[in-house]
Amino acid sequence: MAKSALLKSSIAKKYWMALTGLFLCLFLAGHLAGNLQLLLPNASEKFNAYALFMTTNPAVKILSYLTYISIIFHAVDGILLTFQNRAARPVRYVKTNPAANSGFASRNMAVLGTVILIFIVTHMVNFWARMHFDKNIPLMKTTISVKGQEPREFYVGTGDGQYYMVDQVALEGEAKDTTANMMMMPKQLKIVNRTEVYNAGANVKVGNVYKDLHKITVDFFRDPKVGLLATLGYVIAMLALAFHLWHGFQSAFQSLGINNKFTPTIKFVGRAFAIIVPLLFAIIPLYIHFTK
């Protein structure tokens, strides 16, 4: 009885909603910290290094799977609850006055959640999928000018705690004495699978060339055709997120049975989180679209 109750009962559904929701709040804070690097002066280098870390670090991989599971569970549980709740009132009222006793956000969690889910899907198609599956993803380049020579473009890579400047020709994948260069310490390097840097002689992987997620992001929000639309869509989604968090954050604690002398503080923190986090997220595409 006890075991099945923890999966099926109305209260258990609330626990899961609360736990996945709070975990996703942690995810939001982490994701925001990463994204804010887009506002730094050397954004390209910082953000691409961060993107490489996020796609290759094993601890991050575990967290990312937890995040995917949480999003799916939160959405499925939410849809299930919404259908059950509608079924609990088969005949609707003719006249209602819901604003008299409850807030807008608390009554529209399903609608707000749907807007956020649509955003997450498009967001993953635009960035996550390109980062993971796009064979022609742009690579991060830098131009180096040496006095008396033509300026040359290099791909930027990292590995073994060192930065690499890989000659463009190395992209061909053939190990030739002259095709790879590293700044400071010449080494024969070649690039395999577009992003993996190999020591040409020993045929050992030494690092990765940065995928230029920074360029993808900036190009996306500055696109002459859809850049404005993408920016507006992003801002609208963050507005939905703000309302969702406004109710959701403190509601999660109530669902978990925490309603005591700390509740006013939890409510205050939740509302601050609901304003600050989506606002900072929204500033980034606005900044990219309207500057430079």
């Binding site: 059950q84 006793n101 608390s106 509601s251």
Partner: peptide
């Protein structure tokens, strides 16, 4: 009965 969503109504 439906499931509580903490609207407080």
């Amino acid at each position: 009965f439906g499931n509580c969503t903490n609207t407080g109504a």
